[in-house]
Amino acid sequence: MGLAVVELKGVTKRFETTDHTALQDLTLEVPQGMFVSVVGPSGCGKSTLLNLAAGLDQPSKGNVAVSGRVGYLFQQDALLPWKTVIENVLLGLVFRGSVVDRSLGMTWLRRVGLETFAAHFPSQLSGGMRRRVAMVQQCIVEPEILLMDEPFGALDVHTRHKMESELLGLWTPPQTILFVTHDLEEAIALSDRVVVLSAGPASTVLSSYDIDLPRPRNLIDIRTEDRFQDLYRRIWSDLRAEVLKSYAQIQ
């Protein structure tokens, strides 16, 4: 594994208007070509962490260093509803002023099985299809670092497993992926490393586990393997306490 392409050093993020400290003294390194997942209970500042890495937000304290072009798959739907599927896919090329090659867009759509929907509007697609288009929209500009914020959270469990496989199919190192989820199973199944965040407010990195499951992975069966279960138990013992803390805060 190579150098760190995303590096957060002693990062604190305070939102002045709400007087809320999302992250406190957080340090995280993401090496090039690695698939790193960040897990933590809801409200632990996972999205804040990605916004900092994407440069959409600035840290109150500490340093954020990112080397390489960034793509960002948001949790919410971010396709432009007034553009067709193919226009959405080509958007990154239009913005960058590069030659807009429609056939390149069609090639990418074919990879996720949506080439026949090129002329449709996003509102005509299912949630899973819109996610695929959003994924392709990011991939076409070939970002060196791909940030993903619970990208499959809103999908039903089967669509979700299918999309996870498709994601691993589209991912080609040295591309780096920083993936945020509250689902530990998903994190272990996909990643090379799982980072556990503590419950908010003032979240920070609690522990970090290397996932040494061999690739390519069969996501259908991997969850029942002994090594998977073993890792799950170890990481869950960390995460469990944080999840309970966040429950206590909600009540």
């Binding site: 994407a54 959409l56 793509g71 948001f74 739907d77 971010a78 432009l80 958007l91 990154g92 913005f95």
Partner: peptide, 11 residues
């Protein structure tokens, strides 16, 4: 999120 997504894509 539409603005942020477009910015990330280089707008």
């Amino acid at each position: 999120v539409l603005l942020n997504n477009a910015r990330i894509l280089g707008a």
